[in-house]
C-alpha cells in the first residue's frame, strides 16, 4: 500500500456535510476516534474508502473526507469485496450495524469473513433498530420490549463475536464507543492486520436503547464488568485486580484468585495468535451479567487473503500470457470458406 506523503490531521478527514446523528449519539465518539486514528496509519487519504449499508451507522461515509459509498441494506461487504479484489492498493473499511450486518446482511458478512478479504469491518452494535425508530434487532436481548415486541421479543440474540469466529475471521476484536484510547488501539491493530478484521463496537442509542451498555461505560461498574484482553497476560479484572478467569474443565469461572490462594499465573492466559479458535470462543461466550465481558483482540491469525491470492493469480496469468486476443479468437476448430 502507498505511504502518505503528507502529515494528516483529524480535521483533514471532515466533510462539509452536517453530521445528522441525534445529539449525544454514541456514533459521534466513534467518528471522532476514527478521524484521530487515520492520520496515524500513514495511508494517503485518497487511498482510503469507507463503504456502508443502511442504518444510522451507515451514514458514516458521508462524514469522512475520503472516498466512500453508502450502498444498500446489508450488502456493504459485497461492494467492499468487489472493490478490494479489484483495487488491492486501497484501504477498504466497512461500516455496519447490528441490523445491517447481522440481520439482512448476515450472509454477506459471513462470506466476506470466511474468504478473508482484506477489509476492515466495524459493526456498531446498539442492540436496536434506530433509523426505523426502535424495533428489536438481532442482538437485542431475549424478551426485549420494543415497538415491534410490546410483550417482549421471542428472538434469541446473535452473539457477534461467536458469529465472526464461526466464519473464521482472521482478526476479531471488541471495543466500546466511549473507550477512546482503547478503540484507537484496536482500530490501529485492525488496520495493520492483513485479512478481514471484524470489530464489534458497543454503541449507545440515546433515544431507543439508552443505557444498554452502562455496565461497560460507567467508570465504577466497568471494573467488575469488563475484562480487558492482553496477549500473553493472565485474565485479571476488578477494581483491585482481585478477580480472574479460571478454567474449570471446559467451563470458565470467575474467581477471587488472591483470596483463594492462587497467583495471576494460575489464571487463563490470553493468546490472540492461537491457531485454534477455542479460547477465543470461550471468551466470546462470556456475557454480562454472568461474566465480565472481554474487550480487546480476541483473535489475530495470519492466513492468505482472498484478494491477495486473486491478485497474484491475475499477475501470473497476465505475465504468462503467450497469445493475443486475436489468437484466442482463432482457437478451437476452424475452417476456411473460399
Amino acid at each position: 500500500m502507498k505511504k502518505s506523503e503528507q502529515v494528516l490531521a483529524p480535521k483533514d478527514f471532515a466533510t462539509d456535510l452536517d453530521v445528522r446523528w441525534c445529539p449525544g449519539c454514541g456514533d459521534y465518539s466513534i467518528l471522532a476516534n476514527i478521524k484521530k486514528t487515520l492520520p496515524t496509519l500513514d495511508i494517503p487519504k485518497e487511498n482510503i474508502v469507507f463503504i456502508s449499508g443502511i442504518g444510522c451507522s451507515s451514514r458514516f461515509p458521508y462524514y469522512m473526507n475520503t472516498y466512500g459509498m453508502n450502498t444498500i441494506h446489508g450488502r456493504a461487504p459485497t461492494f467492499a469485496t468487489g472493490l478490494k479484489c479489484s483495487r488491492p492498493d486501497l484501504s477498504v473499511w466497512v461500516i455496519t450495524g447490528d441490523g445491517d450486518g447481522l440481520s439482512i446482511g448476515g450472509n454477506h458478512l459471513m462470506h466476506a469473513m470466511r474468504r478473508n478479504v482484506d477489509i476492515k469491518i466495524l459493526l456498531f452494535n446498539n442492540q436496536i433498530y434506530g433509523l426505523t425508530k426502535g424495533q428489536y434487532s438481532p442482538t437485542s436481548i431475549f424478551g426485549k420490549r420494543t415497538k415491534s415486541s410490546p410483550t417482549g421479543s421471542l428472538d434469541y440474540a446473535v452473539n457477534p463475536i461467536s458469529w465472526a469466529l464461526g466464519a473464521e475471521a482472521s482478526f476479531i476484536a471488541r471495543t466500546v464507543y466511549s473507550y477512546g484510547d482503547h478503540m484507537r488501539e484496536v482500530l490501529r491493530r485492525a488496520a495493520d492486520h492483513k485479512g478481514t478484521a471484524f470489530i464489534e463496537i458497543y454503541q449507545n442509542c440515546l433515544i431507543f436503547n439508552d443505557g444498554t451498555f452502562k455496565y461497560a461505560t460507567d467508570k465504577e461498574l466497568r471494573y467488575d464488568n469488563i475484562l480487558e484482553l492482553k496477549h500473553g497476560e493472565p485474565m485479571v479484572f476488578g477494581r483491585d485486580r482481585e478477580k480472574g478467569i479460571f478454567l474449570h474443565g471446559l467451563t470458565p469461572k470467575v474467581i477471587k484468585y488472591k483470596e483463594a490462594g492462587f497467583t495471576e499465573y494460575d489464571l487463563l492466559i490470553h493468546d490472540e495468535y492461537a491457531t485454534e479458535p477455542t479460547l477465543a470462543f470461550f471468551l466470546s461466550r462470556m456475557r454480562h451479567p454472568h461474566f465480565p465481558e472481554p474487550v480487546g483482540v480476541f483473535r489475530a491469525i495470519q492466513k492468505e487473503t482472498y484478494d491477495g491470492m486473486l491478485e497474484q493469480s491475475m499477475r501470473e496469468a497476465i505475465e504468462a500470457r503467450t497469445k493475443s486476443f486475436q489468437e484466442l479468437l482463432h482457437e478451437g476448430e476452424t475452417w476456411t470458406v473460399t
Binding site: G82, L83, L310
Partner: peptide, 23 residues
C-alpha cells in the same frame, strides 16, 4: 477477474464495487 459470489446480490454488489474502483 472472476468472482463466484455467495448469491446474485453479492455478484452485482461486488461488480458495482469494482466499477467504483475503476474496473
Amino acid at each position: 477477474r472472476v468472482f463466484q459470489a455467495e448469491d446474485e446480490i453479492a455478484a452485482i454488489g461486488s461488480a458495482i464495487g469494482a466499477s467504483f474502483g475503476g474496473l
